[in-house]
Design a protein around this nucleic acid. Structure first.
Lengths: 131, 131
DNA sequence: GCTTGACCTTCCACCAACTGGAACCCTTAT
DNA sequence: ATAAGGGTTCCAGTTGGTGGAAGGTCAAGC
């Protein structure tokens, strides 16, 4: 398979696939003309990484997960630990965003949004700095 | 005020303040020794930007908001539009994260997390790629 | 007067995770 | 012959800063 095929099947842009090679996720063979020749296994790994990324795992998480994936004897507890950490990170992000949302939504609601200049949003942002 | 004072009062690291000067948010005077000399107005603007950033506004949003802030005649509708867009972005991010969270949480729950190698998390990530 | 330590300065490099673009090669069809 | 549509490399840019080196400045203590 050439990079275009793999891109289509994995759903990742070709650029990203080259990048993933760069950082050592895959190491496809090369044919005589220099084109990358992908094996099923490469496609598999790329799809794996694509899914993990879409679930919010970082690249380093993916590296860990790939190693666990390749290790037939790994304990599921190791995988679960990575996933749980990720879950906690996601929860923290959601909480942050919900805080922001609450404040901002309050400000938006209180702003008339008309042609006059008085605006509680700017007033709040520009409130007196501490001492 | 020197940069250290402004850092403390605005809550922003000195590095960040220099960066904000770089990108044109402020333009503090300089004293004979080359030190930045911050006026109240600079502190004000930095605090403004710090608050806006903590509400998830991008740097470019901040640029817009600062301009509106400085413009005594602006319409509050202009500000509201920026804030509403930000709110929509935040909502989209929250929805994304909640999707991730649901999937991942399901996977984590279904994984035994013991010493055995079978792991539904990896099984799902590694499932057969499309045709 | 000298040193010490806390400040300040600039500049350059780096982080994540790609993405865009230039300049060029390979293959196939017309 | 040439044009379209692959592929290749490499360099630079994105966002919003952060870390560190190398060096200038200032105030206090001895």
């Amino acid at each position: 398979m050439n990079i275009g095929d793999v891109a289509e099947r994995s759903g990742l842009p070709a650029k990203t696939i080259r990048y993933y090679e760069d950082i050592g996720f895959i190491c496809p063979a090369r044919s005589a003309n220099g084109y990358r020749q992908f094996a099923q296994k490469d496609l598999h790994k790329l799809t794996f990484v694509g899914r993990a990324r879409s679930l919010g795992f970082t690249i380093e998480d993916c590296r860990t997960l790939l190693a666990l994936y390749e290790d037939r004897g790994r304990a599921s507890a190791d995988v679960k630990r990575v996933a749980q950490q990720n879950l906690a990170d996601i929860d923290a992000k959601i909480a942050d965003l919900q805080d922001m949302r609450a404040t901002l939504s309050h400000l938006v609601t209180s702003c008339a949004g008309d042609g006059r200049p008085d605006c509680p949003i700017l007033d709040t942002l520009g409130g007196a700095p501490k001492a």
